[in-house]
Design a protein around this nucleic acid. Structure first.
Length: 420
RNA sequence: GCGGAGAUAGCCCAGCCUGGUAAGGCGAUAGACUGCUAAUCUAUUGUCCGUAAGGACACGGGGGUUCAAAUCCCCCUCUCCGCGCCA
């Protein structure tokens, strides 16, 4: 959520940002109209309330006709206040609706562009492997080795769900443990939050109201299945004023994530796009002044996972039109999947600046006694498991159909060197 | 799920029955004073509107009654205790 004061003071800057992101500029005009009227109404209501407070305090001391007259007068004032307050809450709802749907302002270093074609490749790491044989797609490998079972996943839960079996399940568990251990060494505190979140949390990080269709909803209990650990972990500190001395706060969490992928035809076979997947996530709460440096170190920390696994990848700086709406700047890490010749988005590292903090009311006090300010929040996947699994199976496959276990994972698999 | 007790400012806690506009304490910060970083005194320590002066709002959340609600009524959330059920 943007600062209402910023929008009032510099609406053209906000208009530019909305246009660069290809959002509807009418959001801005709707806000400005509602906000102007809202402020007038608040001021009018405040005047009446002041009058009512003043007179109400005098009433007990009055007597007879004078008292009756004042009571009657205040009865009418109260009616006016009531209708003004109703109007105020209508207008405020309009303001909030515009605000909640208005995207964050891109950082000046973000390229302006419409879609993924305008993203910038920042770096490419490790040359692609020369196989000497025709590499198989991961879902072929998975089924041949009997470590991924799509049919039974569909039977148990539905299309888009799968079962990891045997060494496939062990490899998944090894990856989770490896990633958490690495992030812990990098200075992140491990947490394991709830896998469901309430409305306030989903609004706080920006999934609601825009992304409601992408989340699984448990209507009966008013809860949502976790779409990304960014949500529960960032909301750990919702409605809190953090102690400046404890910043930056760094958390890492392993958590299953759920996406409905509504409207997307899952024409992609395999596990690259599924409804439930594991992810290890990093979340930071930092002082505003250093947040873009923190984004660079977050990216470095995420890259360390891929480098340790010795997988080919590249890093993209997303353009204004391709970023998720709550990010101010975002890098994607894409793994190379040789069989399909595809680059798979495996991590997103974003600086949300104060956008989430303002929604979720996460503040800190820069100096004792000074006014509290919003922190900046950042989030990076470190990393999404299924696509990492795809990259491992395809890059580490051998001609005999087996898959070599990446060296860094072997300690997590009792020293096992190959699968199959 | 049932019964009981609770939720008040950064923290603790009074006020609720009997409606009159949040008492007191602790901590933190600033200032005053003082041989002293102690003690004491004063101010500040939530949100919003306003350039400001100032004002409004805020007693878990939302409604209602009333000239006036922390206080009375209704709904909801969470916490604690007991019972039930349960991996």
């Amino acid at each position: 959520m943007l600062d209402a004061n910023l929008i009032r003071e510099d609406p053209e800057r906000v208009r530019r940002a909305i246009m660069d992101r290809f959002y509807d500029v009418s959001l801005l005009d709707a806000f400005l109209a509602a906000d102007g009227e809202w402020r007038q109404a608040v001021d009018a209501a405040n005047r009446l309330k002041r009058e009512r407070n003043r007179v109400s305090q005098q009433i007990p001391a009055l007597g007879g006709d004078e008292k009756a007259a004042k009571i009657e007068e205040m009865r009418q004032v109260s009616e006016e206040i009531k209708s003004l307050d109703a109007r105020i809450s209508e207008l405020d709802a309009l303001r909030q609706e515009s605000l909640l749907n208005m995207p964050n302002i891109p950082h000046h270093s973000v390229p302006v562009g419409a879609d993924e074609a305008d993203n910038i490749i920042v770096k490419t790491w490790m040359k692609e492997r020369d196989f000497g044989f025709e590499p198989k797609e991961h879902f072929v490998i998975g089924e041949e080795l009997d470590i991924i079972d799509f049919a039974r996943g569909a039977k148990v839960a539905g299309s888009g769900f799968y079962v990891l079996k045997g060494d496939g399940a062990r490899l998944e568990r090894a990856l989770i443990n490896f990633m958490l251990d690495l992030h812990r060494q990098q200075g992140y505190r491990e947490v394991f939050p709830p896998i469901v979140v309430n409305d306030d949390s989903a609004v706080g990080t920006g999934q609601l109201p825009k992304m409601a269709d992408d989340m699984y909803q448990m209507e009966r209990d008013g809860l949502w299945l976790n779409p990304t650990a960014e949500v529960p972990v960032t909301n750990l500190h919702r409605d809190e004023i953090l102690d400046a001395s404890e910043l930056p706060l760094r958390y890492t969490a392993y958590l299953p994530s759920f996406r409905r992928e509504a409207g997307r035809h899952s024409d992609t076979r395999g596990i690259a796009r599924v409804h439930q997947f594991n992810k290890v996530e990093m979340v930071k709460f930092v002082r505003p002044e250093g947040s873009f440096d923190e984004l660079e170190s977050l990216l470095t920390d995420a890259e360390a996972v891929i480098r340790a696994l010795e997988l080919p990848y590249r890093v993209l700086l997303l353009c204004s039109g391709d970023m998720s709406f709550h990010a101010s700047k975002c890098y994607d890490i894409e793994l190379h999947a040789p069989a399909g010749g595809r680059w798979l988005e495996t991590s997103s590292c974003s600086n949300f600046t104060d956008f989430q903090a303002r929604r979720a009311m996460i503040k800190y006090r820069p100096e004792p006694h000074l006014k509290s300010e919003f922190v900046h929040t950042l989030n990076g996947s470190g990393v999404a498991l299924p696509r990492t699994m795809v990259a491992i199976l395809e890059n580490y496959q051998n001609e005999d159909g087996s898959v070599t276990v990446p060296e860094v994972l072997r300690p997590y698999m009792q020293g096992q060197r190959t699968i199959g």
